Amino acid sequence: MPLDPDAIDPVDRHVGARIREERTAAGVTQSQLGEAIGVTFQQVQKYERGTNRISASMIVRVANTLNVPLVSLFPGSGAQAAPAETLATLKGGRQLAEAFVAMTPRQRDALLSVATEFVGADKVASAPRAATLRAASR
């Protein structure tokens, strides 16, 4: 069965959808993104729908402009991305990370205790590592 050359590749559709998600989460319009990466807002629309393929160099520009890890724009990246990269892609994640960095070591310990209680200490896979990081940050 030959491939339909006019069909949108599922990977192109996924990358476009991820770009749209990250752009809207960042509060950036299609026009603003287009201007930042050197294309029109119509071209950004086509990238986001997957109707126009986006080059590797353009994907790098988009990721840098939106301040997201490049891997987060590709299929399967949710399961493969490190927790820090995943945090950066979540709504409020960047603000949480910035606030965490600005805290004192005591405040970080308190917030980490509360966070692990919310999800259950057994679900935090890196809890021993987090304790080591806390001790090293003092």
Rank of each mutant, 00 (worst) to 15 (best):
E35S: 08
E35Y: 02
E35G: 11
E35P: 00
E35K: 08
A36C: 05
A36P: 10
A36E: 08
A36M: 09
I37W: 08
I37M: 07
I37S: 11
I37G: 11
I37V: 15
G38P: 06
G38I: 01
G38W: 03
G38H: 05
V39G: 07
V39M: 06
T40W: 01
F41W: 04
F41Y: 08
Q42H: 11
Q42A: 11
Q42T: 11
Q42N: 04
Q42R: 13
Q42K: 06
Q45C: 06
Q45I: 02
K46Y: 12
K46D: 05
Y47R: 00
Y47H: 04
R49T: 15
R49C: 06
R49Q: 11
G50E: 09
G50W: 05
T51C: 01
T51Q: 10
N52Y: 14
I54S: 01
S55K: 12
S55E: 13
A56Y: 07
A56L: 10
A56S: 15
A56V: 15
S57F: 08
S57W: 05
S57Q: 14
M58Y: 02
I59F: 00
I59C: 04
V60Q: 13
V60K: 09
V60C: 04
V60A: 13
R61V: 01
R61K: 15
R61M: 07
R61C: 06
V62K: 09
V62N: 09
A63E: 05
A63S: 13
A63K: 04
N64C: 00
N64L: 08
N64G: 13
T65M: 01
T65S: 15
T65E: 08
L66V: 09
L66A: 10
V68K: 15
P69K: 09
P69W: 08
P69G: 11
P69V: 12
P69A: 12
P69N: 09
L70V: 13
L70M: 14
L70G: 03
V71R: 14
S72K: 09
S72Y: 10
S72P: 11
S72R: 13
L73N: 04
F74L: 12
F74A: 03
F74P: 02
F74I: 01
F74K: 00
G76Q: 10
S77Q: 06
S77H: 10
G78Y: 07
A79S: 14
A79T: 12
